[in-house]
Design a protein around this nucleic acid. Structure first.
Length: 269
DNA sequence: ATGCCTAGCTCCGCTAGA
């Protein structure tokens, strides 16, 4: 009993909202309903000065945002303030990385929130940029962090890791977000010492997707892909209670095309 | 078939998303 009282539930959620301007009311509703300790957002599509801080602060969240004009934009909202934070790949010239990668130390745990480039079409310069981005992320982890300490990498990876993670692996073979080269890049990233939280808890369950096309009634038919992930180091995996995809917001009116992915940890208070 | 994908941006169509 004493042990239970000393442990706390720590919920981390990641959600590609496809414009925070268009989705502000839904994100506020989500925070009120689910009350995650941390919510990572991708595709805010906002400049830093345009982030609507007040309604989120009113709900008790601290805000870190790494945005820019038009596309991209990542944020970390947290009930506890960040002790340290950084954006982009430090020391690198890439103009997009500071809108796609944000890291924050919260409750003593480094949380890396990422929006990996889409990379379409396959074989283009942009496709190579996507692969390179994933390899640079691995180098960044090597240079700056250790797999021996609790760390969480989450966000829109824009890659479905395995055939079980897409609705039709034969149809989608070689397509963007399920191409062999993307999947092998993701394996190199994982080999640093990261575990897929969802598959740690639900290794064989098919049909677990986090993105569905707006077209073709894809959500209703569950024709989707698992592109959004929460990966953790071994020390944090030991505290993982569950990981799941929260499909409800995908069914709301005027939704994002992605659904939140959630991990719940039992941590010492 | 009542029904079309949805953002931003600078227009009133285009590009990107995945």
């Amino acid at each position: 009993m004493l042990l239970e009282e000393e442990a706390m539930d720590w919920k981390v959620s990641t959600w590609n909202v496809n414009s925070l301007k268009a989705r502000q009311e839904q994100v506020l509703k989500y925070l009120e309903l689910r009350k995650p300790a941390v919510l990572a957002l991708q595709e805010t599509k906002l400049r830093d000065e345009a982030f609507p801080q007040l309604p989120f602060q009113t709900l008790g969240y601290h805000i870190l945002h790494a945005g820019g004009p038009g596309r991209n934009g990542v944020a970390i909202l947290s009930q506890e303030p960040a002790e340290e934070w950084l954006r982009g790949f430090p020391g690198q010239e890439d103009p997009q990385a500071p809108e796609r990668l944000l890291a924050a130390k919260i409750h003593g745990i480094w949380i890396l929130a990422v929006y990996i480039p889409n990379g379409s079409p396959v074989g283009s310069d942009y496709f190579l940029y996507k692969l390179e981005f994933i390899y640079r992320l691995r180098e960044f982890l090597e240079a700056r962090f250790s797999p021996e300490v609790p760390l969480l990498l989450c966000g829109d990876f824009n890659v479905a890791p395995e055939p079980i993670d897409v609705f039709d692996p034969e149809l989608l073979a070689g397509h963007i977000c399920f191409h062999e080269r993307e999947r092998s890049a993701l394996k190199v990233l994982a080999d640093w010492g990261l575990y897929d939280a969802l598959r740690a808890k639900h290794p064989e369950t098919p049909g677990l997707f986090s993105w569905w096309d707006y077209q073709f009634g894809a959500f209703k038919a569950n024709r989707g892909m698992r592109l959004d992930h929460i990966w953790v180091t071994k020390p944090l995996l030991n505290h993982l209670r569950d990981c799941y995809i929260d499909r409800e917001p995908r069914g709301w009116k005027r939704p994002s095309d992605h659904a939140p992915v959630v991990a719940v940890f039992e941590l010492p208070d």
